[in-house]
Computed example of a mutant assay.
Amino acid sequence: MPLQLSRDPVPAMLQLLDDNIWTAAGPQVGVLGFSYPTRMVVIRLAGGDLFVWSPTALTPELKAAVDARGPVRHLVSPSAMHNLFLSEWQAAYPDARLYAPPGLRARRPDLAFDGDLADGGGHPWSDEIDQVHFAGNRIATEVVFFHRPSRTAIFTDLIQQLDARDLKGWRALVARLDLMTGDQPQTPRKFRLAFTDRKAARAALTRIEAWPARRVLMAHAPPVMEDGQAFLTRTFAWLRD
């Protein structure tokens, strides 16, 4: 899906969520006529290195805020659809390693990737951050992360919520039918229908639901700050049925 940067980028500054984990709102991004909020996450690992999840537009203010927290060593794109700002971050942090989710290497051959987001351990962050490839979807393949010290689960596209007040006419109708403007974040209908391998998806969900999540962060929805594990159980009840 084509992405366009909004004409009015949102100034992004880091907000502390818990010890060594911050989030920042990025600019609105246009996808097929719809504007999506964006969010990135910065985690400081035990050794002081920074893990940057789904980097948003790199403004001077954001760069200064990130640099004040430590050296950027890991740039992580959690979904093949989240690649709009990777080149500017790679240029700004040439010593950082860039990691690709499934499908992104083929989509962005112009980028020099240093590693892939394979399941299991072996990554420099594995002692503190768990990850699961939420497989089985034709259009929304993503890697879900869990920061164990803060008990924070981090999702990309599989859980979303748009503000209905920002949508008019046919866009409001489409968003409502796609389950994107409900009273809480949930999986859009198009992504539910795109799960062609539900066995693989349920296996990933079983691992995710075992996380003792307190909060849930999402790229395109307000954060859920409490009872995250119960929220995930409710949100993915449709997949277990």
Score class of each variant (00 low, 15 high):
63 K>P: 01
1 M>I: 11
208 I>C: 07
104 L>E: 00
212 P>W: 03
230 A>F: 07
67 D>C: 07
156 T>V: 13
190 K>V: 13
175 A>D: 01
168 K>V: 13
118 A>N: 11
27 P>C: 12
97 R>D: 03
114 D>V: 11
178 D>C: 12
169 G>L: 00
164 A>L: 15
11 P>T: 12
153 A>N: 09
225 M>A: 09
50 L>W: 03
69 R>S: 00
1 M>Q: 04
173 L>E: 13
151 R>H: 14
78 P>D: 00
91 A>H: 12
91 A>M: 12
20 N>K: 12
60 P>M: 08
53 W>C: 07
219 A>C: 12
9 P>Y: 09
81 M>Y: 03
207 R>C: 01
120 G>W: 04
19 D>S: 13
36 Y>G: 05
195 F>G: 03
64 A>W: 05
14 L>K: 13
193 L>K: 12
209 E>T: 05
236 F>E: 05
7 R>G: 09
226 E>W: 00
12 A>V: 05
117 L>W: 02
168 K>R: 15
39 R>E: 09
136 G>A: 14
147 H>L: 05
119 D>W: 03
200 A>L: 06
110 D>A: 14
127 D>C: 11
82 H>N: 11
43 I>L: 01
198 R>H: 11
168 K>C: 07
226 E>P: 00
7 R>L: 14
30 G>S: 14
38 T>N: 07
56 T>M: 00
96 A>R: 03
134 F>E: 04
148 R>C: 10
194 A>G: 13
176 R>D: 06
26 G>E: 08
124 P>K: 03
231 F>H: 08
58 L>A: 04
11 P>L: 15
11 P>R: 15
18 D>Y: 10
10 V>N: 14
190 K>F: 15
